[in-house]
């Protein structure tokens, strides 16, 4: 288990499925923030997806449950793992009722500490919509910098928006840790 300030990251368990289903299949806001859309999903289809995500090869993707007092409130993962270039992409979703309390920043920072110090990654990337301002603030607070914007690259909530590309490098992250 990776202990953050208030959250902890641990492996998913079968008993987290109900929380995961509420998060990934029922929460429209969370779904839109993650994929730009929401589609109705049966429990069976969601269970199939849950297994395909959790059973993914750790060469490609590594998943953590974000927990408070062992209760699952979200998911954080690295994906598109490229060990040769020491890169991976971060994906996080949190229960929308738990937003605004600093859990996202805590989870991202805990994951970065693991990726840079325990694992040997040099760079973590992510992308999000330009209208997802709360997420962008959270990522900047964790040390990510904006590296680019793909123009009009997504349709979200009735408008065409940019995709914001962000990245954080190990030396930058280490420097921030030493300063704070």
């Amino acid at each position: 288990m990776l202990q953050g300030e208030r959250i902890a990251l641990r492996p998913f368990r079968e008993s987290d499925f109900d929380a995961w289903y509420r998060l990934m299949a029922e929460d429209v806001e969370v779904s839109i923030a993650g994929s730009g859309t929401w589609l109705p999903q049966t429990v069976e289809a969601a269970r199939h997806r849950w297994h395909s995500i959790l059973d993914a090869s750790p060469d490609d993707r590594i998943n953590f449950a974000v927990t408070i007092d062992d209760r699952c409130i979200g998911s954080i993962a690295i994906k598109f793992i490229d060990r040769r270039s020491q890169n991976a992409w971060l994906a996080i979703v949190l229960d929308s009722t738990q937003l605004g309390q600093g859990y996202g920043r805590d989870a991202v920072n805990t994951l970065l500490r693991w990726a840079f110090m325990i694992e040997n990654f040099h760079r973590i990337s992510l992308d999000t919509w330009s209208t997802n301002e709360r997420a962008i603030r959270c990522y900047k607070a964790a040390g990510f910098v904006e590296e680019g914007r793909m123009r009009e690259a997504a349709w979200v909530n009735g408008q065409r928006v940019d995709i914001v590309e962000m990245g954080v490098l190990r030396p930058e992250w280490l420097e921030r840790q030493q300063r704070s």
Partner: peptide, 9 residues
Amino acid sequence: VGRWRGSYQ
């Protein structure tokens, strides 16, 4: 429109 810094070794 952007650069993924240092993402290629």
